[in-house]
């Protein structure tokens, strides 16, 4: 075990998998010589060379389109999109092509690739360096969406994602890139892409979170305990396909649900989770589910802390759910 932050853990996973499997290639803007604007690919260019760690022209559509082609050939590309806010020029390639290749070719053309991209706010990035766009990808059948909250999961989930036969969007919560530190095993291991984890056990209210907001949910849980409310916090880890069993089991126990995400509320992923719980566990609910999310506005700059669903907004929601 070594202490690592999330940047180091992801870097470690990439290095390990590139050494183990020569089909794995990394490509993107500034990923080579400089090792990425967040230094996630640092050192890989020196170790694996220009053919496998590739600085590309400035075109997300070009990066993802060619990565799809590489995957069709049989490589396992791991393209980086510098900020998830810049993924939209590649949206057509992702949702019309990557997501549908297996299906439209009757399984002849699977695309094994992982798109890594930093997500989320709280770094003074304004509209275009802060968004958390999971819902826009979950909505398109065929994509898996992962968002780790800690270094251990980040490494294990990334290794599992690269080995997964389906395309994966790997969202890295940049607010905790360096803040979240933890023990990470040196060698090879994976974290199951089908399993959420219960980060904190409790009996009164279920709080569902992921990525950077997990820490806010845990903080709110500690404060709720002071008020006599026992909170269970679930870290989804893989957002889609959702580990529905873990969610339903928890809600059956607590009867109360709070869902947290940074993205705007309307048509956000929280709406889907609440709907699923209503469909599958309606008679176990003792209170109306609550969503604590970003507001339905573009992501602001100066007021970003008032935009994010931080602990100070999760706590009253948890208390409200508990008292209902």
């Amino acid at each position: 075990m070594t202490q690592m932050n999330m940047v180091q853990a992801i870097n470690d996973a990439l290095r390990l998998e590139m050494a183990r499997d020569d089909r794995v290639v990394v490509l993107g803007e500034d990923v080579g010589k400089v090792g990425g604007v967040f230094r996630v690919t640092a050192g890989l260019h020196d170790e694996f060379g220009d053919d496998r760690v590739i600085d590309t022209p400035l075109s997300e559509g070009g990066i993802i389109g060619t990565a799809v082609g590489m995957a069709l050939y049989g490589l396992v590309p791991v393209p980086e999109i510098q900020f998830s806010d810049f993924i939209w020029p590649a949206y057509d390639q992702i949702v019309s092509e990557l997501a549908k290749y297996r299906y439209r070719s009757g399984g002849e053309y699977p695309c094994n690739m992982v798109i890594r991209t930093p997500v989320g706010g709280g770094i003074r990035g304004g509209h275009y360096h802060s968004q958390h766009p999971e819902a826009s990808f979950i909505h398109h059948a065929g994509l898996k969406v992962v968002c780790p909250s800690n270094p251990y999961d980040a490494k294990g989930l990334l290794l599992a994602s690269i080995r997964d036969p389906d395309p994966v969007l790997f969202f890295e919560p940049k607010r905790v890139y360096r803040a979240a530190k933890g023990d990470v095993p040196e060698g090879d291991y994976t974290v199951d892409l089908t399993k959420a984890t219960v980060s904190r056990e409790g009996s009164d209210v279920t709080v569902i979170a992921f990525g950077a907001m997990l820490y806010e949910a845990l903080d709110a849980a500690v404060k709720a305990e002071e008020q006599g409310v026992d909170v269970e916090v679930i870290d989804l880890r893989t957002l889609w396909p959702l580990d529905i069993d873990t969610v339903i089991e928890s809600v059956k126990k607590t009867g109360r649900l709070v869902v947290v995400h940074e993205a705007p509320k309307s048509c956000g992923f929280g709406g889907e989770i609440v709907s699923l719980v209503c469909e599958k566990a309606f008679y176990h609910l003792e209170a109306a589910p609550i969503r604590v999310t970003g507001w339905d506005t573009p992501f602001p700059y100066t007021l970003e802390m008032e935009y994010l669903p931080l602990s100070h907004r999760i706590l009253p929601a948890v208390i409200e759910a508990a008292k209902a």
């Binding site: 008032e306 907004r313 009253p316």
Partner: peptide
């Protein structure tokens, strides 16, 4: 919905600075 959300923000606790 934005009126409603604005009201929620104004009546809620302030974020850490």
């Amino acid at each position: 919905h934005l009126k409603e959300q604005c009201q929620q923000l104004l009546s809620g606790a302030r974020a850490p600075k």
